[in-house]
Design a binder for these strands. Structure first.
Lengths: 341, 341
DNA sequence: ATTTAGCACTCAAGATCCCAGAGTGCTAAC
DNA sequence: GTTAGCACTCTGGGATCTTGAGTGCTAAAT
């Protein structure tokens, strides 16, 4: 489709634009070491590239700028592997070398590393609860009418939920309840909790509890209420450093949408396996049409998808660096989770 | 010091500027219903007010703008009590009327209400642990070398901490340990935990645990590591709506400092009892010199200070409304916490 | 048949100037 | 003490000009 020389020109334009954020002219291209032909020739090639939709002009007599199609082609076919600096590699090493036992902390640190190295905004979707089972339930009464239920999963995740204790319920009832629950629910995968609760446990409860209805309803509330998938972000202010975001309104709308955690989580969750790049208009959210979002998944032993890590930046993004970095980090996370089993 | 008429003019200028963010001229002031004298007279008064430092010009022939000294005087002496709209009062009602059992949720909702009603950024410092005692400790082992410790306080706050179990430690040791801890530490005020741990408990442990040193060190890590005071913010993007923040760099530096939770928490924590207003340069952080921060404390039964709620906006802030609102909300929080005991 | 030099043309961005409007300070009259 | 009148000042927006970077096209060179 494209000639070798056209590709060469395209790569120079994209690489240069990613660095400078300025339109590139034929003269500037000709000065590059790898270019052996004259500005006039380059102008001809650029005219072709523009006709094919890979580059654009910002006005009739300006230099050229990559189009989204151009970036897409670059990402799919032209990107050269990026070599991270020694310093960056070291930072990653250090993040993962420490004996780390809490995934929450690990994920937070990963987010920090991503945003620090790239100067973009990092977003991480915490591990899903597939495969995790219930380790223990504990109910601790705080007063005569309130108590807190604590769930611990096999991965060490702790959830707690406060609830009102029905006035008819005695302390002894609570203890019975805990016993029943632990008896029946420990070892059950989290995703099956609801089903179990509806099934055998509800029957058992009916026998023991004086008023089954209230007990059952508060249990449901306490155990199944919100989903525990968490979203971690870091480097939110980095976006403001990018020259294409010197417009307050762009920033404002972008920040507003970033605060909607459920929306963001959903985007990451449905991003599919491996590395995915969404450039500009390819993003489903209108507010992100000047951005690119690159996502990578981390898994459990290479199979079950656990969560997603992502970087959000302008469409003029250092794709090569970001993809390399996300590859490394997602692999690290995968390894770490694997080693924890 | 100031004549009645000067004060009248000052109030009109401040009230008007707070609404419009535009400098106010003598003609505009004269048009106000409460003004019975001519623009020329007003100009004379304004010249005096400027000389005294209460108002400023943006350039030689512009209208006047309140100075920080002007705001300070307004806040200290001139503010008229604000009547919240029915709608706003209703919103507050609804937030607090629901049977609410988790303070975390309550505080989050309060933050939301504050930012929604004012269009400023709300910041809330969660309740300190004064007075709260340890309700229960639970240790749940996850694998043969990791476990999670769960602390529940009398207020229902749940903390968990993961740690490595020393390889020499058996499951039976862990159980003994839990018993000892619960025996000795339940009911102890959180602030005294460390002391107790150093004292009697350490002696007991020495008797039971085969290797006291490791046990003791991981315990200390698990129980006393980070302070559990949390910071809740809402409406961060609101600041961008203010015309004085149309400069990316201002926003950038402000956001960057807002992300430093420890700094922010510290400012709120040391803000002192009752309502405090910090105007512009009065703020200790350079990044907040174009802002005003208004803080209010909530207490336990009117005595012990529990936490702080605050609103951050431009110096051109609706002081009257904000002060009224913070008064109401802090009182509500105080009442609610009181009723929970 | 490519490639390149040359040249006319275009456009953005910055500088300069102009003008209207809003507002002030001062003076003199009320 | 208050107000009307007036000259003066400064901002902001628009119009105009200039410069420089860059293009597209044509014709010559390879």
């Amino acid at each position: 489709m494209l000639t070798e020389r056209q590709i060469l020109v395209l790569v120079v334009i994209i690489d240069e634009f990613i660095q400078t954020a300025q339109p590139i002219g034929s003269r500037a291209i000709a000065k590059k070491a790898e270019i052996t032909f004259s500005p006039a020739t380059i102008r001809n090639e650029m005219a072709d590239l523009e006709e094919l939709g890979y580059i654009e002009k910002t006005h009739t007599s300006s230099g050229r700028v990559p189009s989204e199609k151009g970036y897409r082609f670059y990402v799919d076919h032209l990107m050269s592997p990026f070599r991270l600096s020694k310093q960056d590699m070291l930072t990653i090493q250090q993040t993962f070398q420490k004996e780390m036992i809490e995934f929450e902390l690990l994920v937070q640190k990963s987010a920090r590393v991503l945003s620090d190295i790239t100067n973009y905004t990092s977003i991480i979707l915490g591990p899903e609860v597939f495969e995790t089972t219930l380790k223990q339930i504990q109910i601790i009464s705080l007063s005569d009418h309130t108590a807190v239920a604590i769930l611990v999963t096999s991965t060490g995740h702790v959830e707690h939920r406060h609830f009102n204790v029905p006035p008819t319920m005695q302390t002894s009832d609570l203890e019975k309840l805990i016993n029943i629950l632990n008896d029946r629910l420990v070892g059950v995968p989290i995703v099956q909790l609801q089903q179990k609760l509806y099934g055998e446990v509800s029957q058992l409860l009916q026998r023991y509890s004086s008023d089954f209805q209230t007990t059952y309803s508060f249990l449901k509330d306490a155990l199944l209420d919100k989903q525990p998938v968490k979203l971690y972000m870091d480097g939110k202010t980095n976006i403001m450093l990018q020259p294409e975001f010197n417009d307050i309104h762009k920033i404002q709308s972008l920040y507003t949408v970033m605060e909607k955690e459920d929306k963001m989580a959903n985007i990451l969750r449905t991003s599919g396996k491996g590395i995915k790049v969404s450039i500009g208009q390819e993003n489903e959210l209108d507010e992100m049409q000047d951005c690119s979002l690159i996502t990578a998944t981390y898994t459990l032993g290479g199979e079950k998808q656990l969560g997603t890590i992502a970087l959000l930046g302008p469409t003029r993004m250092e794709y090569s660096k970001v993809v390399t970095l996300l590859n490394i980090l997602s692999q690290r996370l995968t390894d770490t989770f694997h080693s924890w089993r």
